[in-house]
Structure formats: structure tokens, C-alpha cells
């Protein structure tokens, strides 16, 4: 698949990723992004047949854990790292559903 990389595609992807691309950087970022996509397009040259994609090394992994409740963090530990904390929770701008 040959991808036509333009600023529209870049902005679409940036929106999904919650990254803002300022208009004065858009050309340079698009060029870098296009180079990365071009590198990724080399994957198409490899004959892969119907190989199952490999998502993990085929190693031994542990079984599920037992259903046992354990220690939690004191809320103060959460508050210590929080940009804004109040009413017992993380405070963000008002969300309307």
C-alpha cells in the first residue's frame, strides 16, 4: 500500500493522538512523518504469506493470579503527584456528557 502523506493525514493522526501540530511546523513535521511512513512501507516488500502476526516472544508466561485483595495507595500519595486535586479526586475542567 502506498500512502499519500499530506498535512490532512498528519492532522487526522495528530488529533487521534492528542498532539497539536502548529501550522508553522506542519510542513516540517509532515516531511519527517512521510519519511517514517516510507520506511514502514518497506514491510510490503517482505513475503509473509499467512503467517500469524507475532505479538509476543513464544516464551513461557505465568498463569492468571489468584483473586486476593491487597494494599492500595493512600489518597495522599495520589494527591502528591496530581496537578489538581480536590473533593477527594483529580480535578479537570467540567465535562458535559
Amino acid at each position: 500500500m502506498t500512502v499519500h502523506v499530506d498535512q490532512a493525514l498528519l492532522q487526522h493522526v495528530a488529533k487521534l493522538a492528542r498532539i497539536e501540530v502548529a501550522s508553522e511546523q506542519a510542513a516540517a513535521t509532515t516531511a519527517a512523518f512521510a519519511a517514517m511512513v516510507a520506511m514502514a512501507e518497506r514491510l510490503a516488500d517482505v513475503e509473509v504469506g499467512d503467517l500469524e502476526p507475532m505479538q509476543h516472544p513464544d516464551h513461557p508466561y505465568p498463569d492468571a493470579r489468584a483473586d486476593e485483595a491487597g494494599a492500595v495507595l493512600p489518597p495522599q500519595a495520589l494527591e502528591a503527584n496530581a496537578p489538581r486535586f480536590g473533593a477527594g479526586g483529580f480535578v479537570v475542567p467540567r465535562v458535559v456528557e
Partner: peptide, 21 residues
Amino acid sequence: RSKLFSVAPTAEAEGPNHAVT
């Protein structure tokens, strides 16, 4: 008794953010 991926209890907590690992 515990959450799907953490050991935090699923029972009603004392207050907000009291059952958080």
C-alpha cells in the same frame, strides 16, 4: 474480591480514590 488486573478491592470503599493501586 479484587479488580481485574490489580489487587485493589472491589468492595465499597471508604471514600473517593480509596480503592486505588
